[in-house]
């Protein structure tokens, strides 16, 4: 950690004009963040004759990751939404030059006085559940209401035709599964066949997709106010049902499909999302994207298994994800496909 302190201090001194005597007074690596190494750093420096203390969060590319994305995707998403009704930290620096910290990284402001809920607890929010759940769905609606072009995101993200959203997403994650699975996966392969046989309707419009919008990926304070939506590394443009289905996936709700992320009832959440986004939920689309969400989840967990097994990243979170999340999602997906198959046979 001393090396990170010294090197980040040198970086700040070079990157921020008009500051001198930079010292990193505290530095801590944050737990989680399996896709990028995350550090909280507090700097002290002289600026215009005054001593300033400021907190930063550093996200550095790891040597191996659950999710292979460019760091500029996440940085640009923060930049697109900073200062809007979607709370995000202020993005400060995007650094591609490996001379500073060996690997590319970006820096954003530290959000203080907040916490993120652990994803696998039955009631992580306690009495704040309803208040947080209401904001959770309103913010998701605000993400989807935004015009991707007006936010500058069509310059850095591919814009699929509405009718192609499902195919692009499925092709991408099916290829990840084919590349990364360490053993044959009859459940997810059966689900992929079902998804290809039953494509969803095209969305009314293509929107920004957060890509990992769920409990655990936002910071809230002790009044129950959501202060920052994080982890935009899978941000892309697509069908908004993708985010809805991911947010409501039972894996984030201790297996309960009726209360997304253990918060408010999903039905109520969908009503709030409809109001905030200005779009309607299409049940047929939602059904398809719910199955897709589990396939995408399994792709991520199978990748984490490979990363851990090959030794490219020994973070225990990868072993846990690769084992527990694969098993849990496989069970949920098998039940869902069995039920869908029975419905089709009865029809």
């Amino acid at each position: 950690m001393d090396e990170i302190r010294q090197r980040f201090a040198r970086y700040l001194a070079a990157r921020m004009e008009g500051i001198t005597d930079v010292e990193i007074v505290t530095a801590a690596r944050l737990h989680g963040g399996a896709s990028r190494e995350t550090y909280r750093l507090r700097a002290r420096y002289l600026q215009e004759g005054a001593t300033v203390e400021r907190g930063f969060v550093l996200r550095r590319d790891p040597t191996g990751s659950l999710i292979e994305t460019e760091r500029d995707v996440e940085y640009n998403a923060y930049r697109a939404y900073h200062g809007t009704d979607v709370p995000v930290p202020e993005p400060l620096f995007l650094e591609m030059d490996g001379q500073w910290l060996d690997r590319p990284f970006f820096v954003m402001e530290e959000i203080t006085g907040c916490t993120a809920a652990p994803p696998f607890q039955p009631d992580p929010y306690g009495p704040l559940r309803d208040r947080i759940g209401t904001q959770f769905w309103n913010i998701l609606g605000a993400i989807h209401r935004a015009d991707p072009a007006a936010r500058g995101l069509t310059r850095c993200l591919d814009m699929p035709a509405p009718a192609d959203c499902w195919r692009q997403a499925l092709d991408y994650w099916a290829a990840v599964i084919d590349a990364d699975a360490l053993s044959p996966q009859p459940i997810v392969q059966g689900a992929i066949r079902w998804l290809r046989r039953n494509p969803p309707p095209a969305p009314p419009r293509v929107t920004v997709i957060h890509g990992d919008y769920r409990t655990g990926n936002f910071l809230y304070d002790d009044t129950g106010t959501i202060r920052a939506v994080l982890d935009w590394e899978m941000c892309h443009l697509g069908d908004p049902h993708e985010d809805i289905a991911w947010a409501a996936d039972p894996l984030w709700a201790f297996g309960d499909p009726t209360r997304a992320g253990t918060m408010i009832p999903t039905e109520e959440g969908l009503r709030l999302w409809t109001q905030a986004s200005g779009m309607a939920v299409n049940p047929e689309s939602l059904r398809w994207w719910q199955v897709f969400a589990m396939v995408k989840g399994l792709a991520i967990w199978l990748s984490s298994s490979r990363e851990y097994a090959t030794g490219s990243n020994r973070d225990p979170i990868l072993a846990f994800s690769g084992w527990f999340c694969t098993a849990a999602h496989n069970r949920m997906l098998a039940e869902r496909l069995r039920d869908l198959t029975l419905e089709e046979c009865a029809a």
Binding site: F120, P186, I187, G190, W323, F324, A327, A328, N330, R331, L333, A334, E335, L337, R338, T341, L342, C345
Partner: peptide, 19 residues
């Protein structure tokens, strides 16, 4: 196909680790 899905449900259930 339905029997296979039912068997896969049973198999997947067996593989969920206890927490």
């Amino acid at each position: 196909a339905t029997r296979i899905w039912s068997a896969l449900v049973d198999m997947s259930d067996r593989h969920v680790p206890s927490l």
